[in-house]
């Protein structure tokens, strides 16, 4: 008499892969987010919007030293209309991952001298909000000059795909 248990013959075990996929996707998302946070040298701001921009592509993270001039904190919805209708004073200045007070220009110069020694080939990128006053941005350009840097790159929005880019200088 066949046993009740082996009535249908031996069963082949089936692996349930759904939880496996769940966990794998979660891991992928986790590492992507962590990676993003680590490589984030940028401060939240709206960079200038140009008429027919001549901007070119930025280098990778490793080939550039970013100087951020941060505007006052804002919620995304606050600047939906005209992004220039906003406070023009700087909140802080960030060189790479170091943060300085908006008036600590000597600190900015010192940090840039140090960064330039460590990465002599890196290009210096000045990222400033479009709404900031020129009276706030110009002293920072002065501080960059005092660090012995002769070329900087101003960040602005890229043109729509297909537009030509122009490089200045010799």
């Amino acid at each position: 008499m066949p046993s009740q248990i082996f009535h249908r013959g031996p069963t082949t075990p089936q692996m349930n892969i759904t939880p496996l996929i769940d966990v794998v996707f979660l891991l992928i998302i986790f590492f992507m987010l962590v990676n993003n946070i680590i490589s984030e040298q940028s401060v939240q701001m709206i960079v200038p919007q140009l008429d027919e921009p001549t901007t070119r592509e930025l280098l990778d993270d490793s080939g550039r030293i970013i100087v951020n001039i941060a505007p006052a904190e804002y919620a995304h919805s606050e600047r939906q209309g005209n992004p220039l209708l906003f406070d023009g004073e700087a909140r802080f200045i960030r060189v790479g991952l170091q943060t300085f007070a908006a008036d600590d220009l000597d600190g900015v110069t010192a940090a840039l001298v140090e960064a330039k020694e460590a990465f002599p080939d890196a290009e210096v990128v000045l990222r400033s909000d479009g709404a900031l006053y020129y009276g706030v941005v110009q002293p920072v350009m002065g501080a960059i000059t005092r660090a012995g840097i002769d070329t900087i790159n101003l960040v602005a929005f890229m043109p729509e795909r297909g537009a030509a880019t122009i490089q200045i200088g010799e």
């Binding site: 996929i21 070119r56 930025l58 290009e123 000059t145 790159n153 960040v155 602005a156 890229m158 200045i168």
Partner: peptide, 30 residues
């Protein structure tokens, strides 16, 4: 189980999507 995976895919694509326009550089001699 299917909903689980679909939500994960949704989160994946939302986090990878880039909503802000690209930034470019203007080179200046100081």
């Amino acid at each position: 189980a299917m909903i689980d995976v679909i939500f994960l895919l949704l989160i994946y694509f939302v986090t990878t999507a880039n909503f802000t326009p690209d930034e470019g550089a203007l080179t200046v001699k100081l």
